[in-house]
Every structure is written in C-alpha cells, then in structure tokens.
Design a protein around this nucleic acid. Sequence first.
DNA 1: GATAAAATTGTGAACGTTCACATTACTGAA
DNA 2: TTCAGTAATGTGAACGTTCACAATTTTATC
Lengths: 345, 345
Amino acid sequence: MKKSSNNVTIIDVASEAGVSYTTVSRVINNKENVRPETRERVLMAMTRLGYVVDQRARSLAGGRSQVIGLLVHDVGTSYIGEIIRGIDAELASAQYDLILYTTHRRKTKESAYVATLTRGLADGLLLVLPRNPGAYLETLRQYHFPHVLIDHRGLDEETPAVAAANRQGAYNATKYLIELGHQRIGFITGAMDQVCAQDRLEGYKAALVDHGIAFDPELVYEGDFFQPSGYTGASALLELPRPPSAIFASNDVSAFGVMEAVREHHLHIPEDISVVGFDDIPQAAHVHPPLTTVRQPLEEMGRIATRMLLEYIADPHLPVERVELPTELVIRQSCQPPKSWEGGG
Amino acid sequence: MKKSSNNVTIIDVASEAGVSYTTVSRVINNKENVRPETRERVLMAMTRLGYVVDQRARSLAGGRSQVIGLLVHDVGTSYIGEIIRGIDAELASAQYDLILYTTHRRKTKESAYVATLTRGLADGLLLVLPRNPGAYLETLRQYHFPHVLIDHRGLDEETPAVAAANRQGAYNATKYLIELGHQRIGFITGAMDQVCAQDRLEGYKAALVDHGIAFDPELVYEGDFFQPSGYTGASALLELPRPPSAIFASNDVSAFGVMEAVREHHLHIPEDISVVGFDDIPQAAHVHPPLTTVRQPLEEMGRIATRMLLEYIADPHLPVERVELPTELVIRQSCQPPKSWEGGG
DNA sequence: GATAAAATTGTGAACGTTCACATTACTGAA
DNA sequence: TTCAGTAATGTGAACGTTCACAATTTTATC
C-alpha cells in the first residue's frame, strides 16, 4: 500500500515516551493499571508524533476492527437511504465505521461470499431485506458471526431481526379506506418472494374480511415494489369493467406509479380515485397530492438493528432478540370517500 | 474477534496441497512461475478447505486491501445515492469493496480524521462535495494517498476531480427561460460556500447579461440546497411587488420547495409560474408537474471518479486528471411562456 | 526493615499475509 | 556428462498490533 513514509507505530511512540510498546497499547485501549503520569507521557508522545492506530493490525492481532458490514441489494433508493441514516447515527456514537456490500453484483456462490465477509474486516453484519436469506443465514450462524436482519423476519425464530408491523399497517390502511366508504379497493403487491410483501397482502385481505367485504382476486395485481409495476398495475385495474375506487400500493414508489397511471387516465386524486402507499419515504409528502401512506420507521429500524448488532458483537451469547416496530397510518391528501358514496357509516 | 474456530489459513492450504505457503500465496495472487499442476493442486486444496483470504493480513503485509473509502456528509439523499450507484458498479468489476465515512459525525479535528483514514483499511479515498476540502486535501496530498474529488473542483489544479459543468448548465437553463419569454427570473442559490453553488449563480447571471437583461439582486434568494430554503425563498419572491414569472432553483430538492410555495400561493405550475431545478434526481420526473431540470450525470460522475481512483491506486505517479462532465437541460412540463408574453422572439 | 501482595511494566509470541532473497529442479547446449 | 541458465519452489523476515505471561516496582503490613 505504500502509505507514505511517515508511518508512526506504537513502537515509535514507545521509545518517544520511554516505555515499552505494550504500555502504549494499554494506553490506547484504556486498560487499567497504568500509572497516571505514564499514561500522560504516552498520550503526549502520541500527539507529538501524530500517531494513529492501524485498524488492520489491531484487528489481525485479535482486537475489534471497529467496522460493521451492511449488506443491501441496491444503494441509492431512499428506502435504503433512510435505513442507512439510522445505522450511521448509531455507529457514529460507537466509533464504528460502515462497509457496504451490494449483493446484486457478485457472481460467486452466495454462501461463499458470506464466508468472505466473516473473514473480512467487519465485526458483524447487518442484512437489509436479503433476497435469499437462506444462503446467508446458515453460513453466518455456522460461523457464529454476529448479524441482524432488517425488514425481514428471517427463516425462523432464531434469527435476530428488526422488522415493521407490515400486516398491521396494511390492515389499518385498508380499514381506513373502507371506513371512508370504499368497497372496491385495488391492491398492488410487492415482490411476493419477500415476506413483507406477503404480510401486507395478508393485512389487506384480513381487513376486507373483517369488514364483510369479499376478497376479489381481480382487484389484486402482482407487482415488484418498483414504479413501473405500480403504473401497469393501476392501468390494468382502471380498465376493469368495474374499476376500484381506491388503490392501495405496497410501497410508496409503486404508489407513484399508480398516480402516474391515474393521471394518464385523466382522473383525479383523490376526487376520482383514492391512493395509499406504504413506507412514507420523504418524497411521499412532496408529491401532488401528498400521499397518504403507512409510515415504516426506517431510520429507527436501522438504529435499533445497529444497537442490537453492537450488543451481539460485545457478547455473542446474548439471547436472540426479535423486534417488531409499529407502523403508523399517515393521512395526507390522496384519499376521500368515493364519488358514489352516500355517507353514513 | 473470535471468528469461529475454522479459520483456515494459507498454511493449512499449503500442507493440504503439499507445498509451501508462499506457493499458495502465489496461486492466490495469480503470480507467474507456478507449474500448472501445482496451481491446480493448490486450487483444489483451497476449495476443499473452504479457504478465503484474510484482507486484513493481506493489507498489513503490504498488499492491497481491496477497499476504497467514500467520504460524504450525508447518506440517504438521492443525490448521494445516485453517485454511490455509479461507484458501486465500477467497484464491483474491480472486486473492490466500499467503506463509508460520514463527516457530519466526527468531532475530531478534520485533518486528524483524514490521517486515520489513510492508516485505515482503504487503498484510496473518494470525497463527495467536501465541506471544507482544505483540511482534507492537504493531508491527503502530504500522505500521497490516492484520492479523487467528486462534484467539487478542489483547491487548485493539482487535485484530481470529477465535476459537472455547473456554470454551463445554469446558463442553458436560464437561457431557455429567457427564450420562453421570461424577463424576471427568480433564483434560489445553493449553499454559497460550495463552488458548485457559486458556479450555478454565475451561469444564471451570465445568461441574463448575454441576453440584455439587467441582473436584479432582489430576485436572488440565498438558499442552502434543502427543501425548506426553496420554500421560503419562493415565498419571498412571490410576495415581491413585482414577482418573477419563473424561478430557477439551484437543485431539485429546493425546486420541490419552490413548487410547494407556489401551490400555497394558489398559483399553478407552469401556467402562472415556471420552475426549473438542477440535478435531475429520479423523483424530478415524478413530481407533478414533472420538473424541467438540468441533468447532472451523477451516476457517471461516481463511475468516472472511481475509475480514476483505481488508476491512481495502481500507479500513484499518474498525472493529475480533472474531468468536467457536460450537463444537459431536461425539458419536462414545469415551464411555459409567461402569461403576459405576447410571442415573438 | 523484611516480606507478601498488589500494581505496574516488559517480553515473547501470535495473528495471516506478502515480499526479498535463497535454494532446488529442470532445461538445453557444449 | 556437465554446466550454465532459467523456472519453480521454499525460507525468513516483516507489517503493527494484542494477548498471556514474566519481571519488576510500589505499597501495605507486621
């Protein structure tokens, strides 16, 4: 790496301070049993020489690397962005750094990849919404490598995880639409290989049933959480012989697609059709009209997962913890009672 | 770190394959002068034992860490997200990983912090829009640590950098508005301690002058690139005795703030007032009406900067390269000729 | 003032690699 | 067959730490 010539090491500091290198190490790591004046002398020498610890060496020798890994499939979405923000905040106070692994890029066998991670620089791993968690989790568990899942319930009860109350959120949003008077409510699903997408669909169905509305498969369009799927899904729903008076999309981004489709059909939100999203990403408040959506506490999820992970790193034998954070319906201006509705309740 | 017991090292592989550990190292690093059958044997042993290289040891011993650092002040914005996407794509093909450093969090002296970075795991550093580049760049240069600036021109011609043609972009957008017939064009600046914000203001001014329109300081509101500043700026401009017929915001996010303010004044875009942004972040296309904006090739900037950085890492003595990528006016539906305008040109 | 106990400091090895150099094995020409 | 020259492999040290343990100093107790 040839990191310049002025690599001042623990040994340089030691001779500058007139002590052994172990003592310097003790000072760095705030170990006890160092005489105050010695500590002081070492500290002085360190600043005088501009010493800074080499994480690689430290980690190799058995310490912590002070780095945690974050495994995501795509950076750059505001969904991930919000989560990272929470992680970062929590990491900052623990003096940890963050290494980013994106899954979409590797060709290697997933489990082999995870093995690399565990040998790598990270002390622990955060996984956001992994596509095929099986491959990862098994390896991680086998290596006893600290890890926490975000926005995913994992394979079984033995996986530490932080998720949102997806089912409940979808239930409440659907209930809200029903109570506004909607009877035909379209639903755009997320990527159905993901548990959260399944949960949201379930919540939607449950609310219908609980309110005496028959579930109509015709009103459900299988999407994938991306905007185009919201667009095509809504287009299909709007062209039904009996179109819905409201559409509930499984995330905000696909709700934006729905809004686009509605506009192209020369209909207005919320006068002609109500729209609800899920996530409450920042721009949900800033589209027109502002989107009513189910708020997922993304930043907090990142925060809590990080806190859990740091605890596992400190003590790998802590019991498995699984957190489900509440979701909250954020009512904005994209919903109103359907046109045909004659009031009452 | 206690990374499980099954830490298979180069030495285990060596004895499994019946060669010395150096030979294994040679195979791993694809060095020449290894007999094909020996190589084969080592490879077999590696897979059999599930060997995976320890980056920390490799890096310590003088190799590459295969990690580059990314210094940003805030993750979670789609501006950064787009850039990261480009970086990530480029890194993937080079088998590099990405470590994220956020500046807003450290209390330590900036230059001391950078020193840490250079001793850390990264082989090089990418800096996105640093707040006070002086502190960083001096240290980096002094340490001969490979680095590339993104979206910032740096202190002098000696800093490798990738930026966008901010001045030209602002010029063209302003010109576009003028050619639509606008004479009073409001301008919301970015954070004026940043060069890109200064450049955009300059481009705006230059276009006015070139088209014989006197620059009116009353029409310029000093913002900070965030949405609220766009909102308050536009509110102020709209309440002027002679309000502008178009507002040009220095980035998309503040343009969203402008749109909000326009709506609150019960005016319509583009009928009553035209709005232009800068950046072309993904949601610019999805607000209502879709925002006309100056496209900055964010992803490409990340990509190119990364490619440059990797070259510097491979050969630190390469000459300093400075790239300015063109910007492009993306015309959507947020602009039209002003109401009062009677055609002609 | 001697002695054990406790606090402080130092020593040596280890972590898993890469690199410079030394050694051995192989090739082909005299 | 012998010798040089090259290709292939091995050896030893180094990278900068931490950790277990050994050695030393200080403190407290009688």
